[in-house]
Simulated scan of single mutants.
Amino acid sequence: MSASFVEVSIRPARLSDCSSLAALSIEVWLGTYIREGVNAFFADYVLAHYTVEQFARALKDPAERVLVSENSIGIDGYIRITNDQPCPANHPSTTEITTLYVQPRHHGNGIGQELLHAGLDLCREIEWDTPWLATNSENTNALSFYKKQGFTIVGQTHFEIEDQRYCNEVFAVCA
């Protein structure tokens, strides 16, 4: 289905969405970063990080905003934005797009773009900085997506799980 035929419905996340957000996150994270089989190291991380409780805490936190994309069946994507998160690169923003996930079967339908624009609009509306974000340096789809949306690489940082480090590109919208 082409993007022009998909009607995207974006709304703020509710506490009743937490289990759907956790399940979607696990699906996207494992599908994106685990390529050759799931081991306990990554399984333990993802199961501890993407929980109903973690999402419930985020939705109650005044420094967090979560918007979801919803189709007739359920949630197919979300954007999570966190305020008071200084950019690790030489950029003045203190607002981070913590997560932008869309179920893989819905890629290419404009959902990610709609979520991103809704998130940027929300930041302007509530007077938060234009956000920065970090994405894995090997995630070519995400790197290409953010560049097409007007983001520029402003530096690098590392995503860490225990003693493992993974290079991430830091993006921001530059004037």
Rank of each mutant, 00 (worst) to 15 (best):
R11Q: 09
G31N: 09
A63W: 12
E96C: 10
A23V: 05
V46E: 05
S9I: 09
V38H: 07
L100Q: 02
Q54P: 00
R14I: 01
E53D: 15
E64F: 13
S72Y: 06
L47Q: 13
P62K: 05
K60M: 11
I75E: 00
A23C: 06
P62R: 10
E127I: 05
E70W: 10
V38T: 15
F41D: 04
F55M: 04
T82D: 02
E36P: 03
V38D: 11
R80E: 02
P62M: 10
L15T: 07
D61A: 05
H91C: 06
P131D: 05
V68L: 12
D44E: 03
C123K: 04
N71T: 10
E27K: 04
L116D: 01
T99G: 01
A13H: 03
I10W: 00
A118Q: 08
R105V: 09
H49M: 12
C87H: 03
R35Y: 10
A40N: 13
A22Y: 14
T94W: 10
E125M: 06
W132M: 07
R35C: 13
N83C: 07
T99P: 00
G74T: 07
D61E: 05
W132N: 04
E70V: 15
L120E: 03
T51M: 10
V28C: 14
L115W: 00
E125L: 10
R14W: 04
E114D: 11
T95M: 03
L67D: 06
I75K: 00
D61Q: 03
S20K: 13
N90F: 14
